[in-house]
Computed example of a mutant assay.
Amino acid sequence: MTLDTTPRIADPDGFFALLVEAHRGLSAEESRRLDARLVLILANQVGDMAALCAAIEAARAAGTKVSDAGR
């Protein structure tokens, strides 16, 4: 499956601000748990296992590229 990574968030800066605010005052562990709950809620919204697998692969590949660039 090809993942559609076309930007579709109407207000990306607003979304980022909401995400940052959601983490305000949380410990590192609480932030990780918030992120995990958010991922599961959004994965449920997507629902398509092929799309979820493609998204995981894309996220891992993006993380690897960032890690490799910092070396």
Rank of each mutant, 00 (worst) to 15 (best):
M1S: 15
L3W: 09
T5R: 11
T5I: 15
T6R: 15
T6E: 15
P7D: 14
R8M: 10
R8T: 12
I9V: 13
I9F: 06
I9N: 04
I9G: 10
A10P: 15
D11G: 05
D11E: 06
D11N: 06
P12A: 02
P12I: 01
P12K: 00
P12D: 02
D13Q: 09
D13P: 00
G14F: 09
G14H: 12
G14P: 15
F15R: 08
F15P: 03
F15H: 03
F16K: 08
F16R: 13
F16Y: 10
A17Y: 04
L18I: 09
L18V: 12
L18R: 09
L19Y: 14
V20F: 12
V20S: 08
A22E: 09
A22K: 00
A22H: 05
A22I: 06
H23Q: 07
R24L: 10
R24C: 11
R24E: 09
G25C: 07
G25L: 06
G25R: 08
G25P: 01
G25Q: 04
L26K: 09
S27A: 05
S27L: 02
S27M: 04
A28I: 12
E29A: 09
E30V: 02
E30S: 04
R32F: 09
R33T: 08
R33E: 11
R33V: 07
L34D: 04
L34E: 03
L34R: 09
L34F: 11
D35C: 02
A36G: 01
A36W: 02
A36C: 00
A36H: 03
R37G: 02
L38C: 13
L38T: 03
L38I: 03
V39L: 05
L40G: 07
L40K: 00
I41H: 01
L42F: 08
L42H: 11
L42C: 11
A43V: 01
A43W: 00
A43T: 01
A43L: 01
A43M: 00
N44E: 05
N44A: 02
Q45E: 06
Q45I: 02
V46D: 03
V46H: 00
V46Q: 05
G47R: 01
G47A: 05
D48S: 01
M49F: 07
M49A: 10
M49V: 08
A50G: 11
A50N: 13
A51C: 07
A51W: 04
A51I: 06
L52M: 06
C53Q: 12
C53N: 13
C53L: 09
A54E: 12
A54S: 14
A54I: 14
A55F: 03
A55D: 01
A55I: 03
I56S: 14
E57H: 15
A58T: 05
A58S: 15
A58V: 09
A59I: 11
R60H: 10
R60S: 03
R60M: 13
A61F: 12
A61Q: 13
A61T: 13
A62M: 10
A62I: 13
A62W: 07
A62P: 08
A62E: 06
G63D: 07
T64C: 08
K65F: 12
K65T: 13
V66S: 11
D68M: 11
D68G: 07
D68W: 05
A69S: 08
A69F: 10
G70S: 14
G70Y: 12
G70F: 10
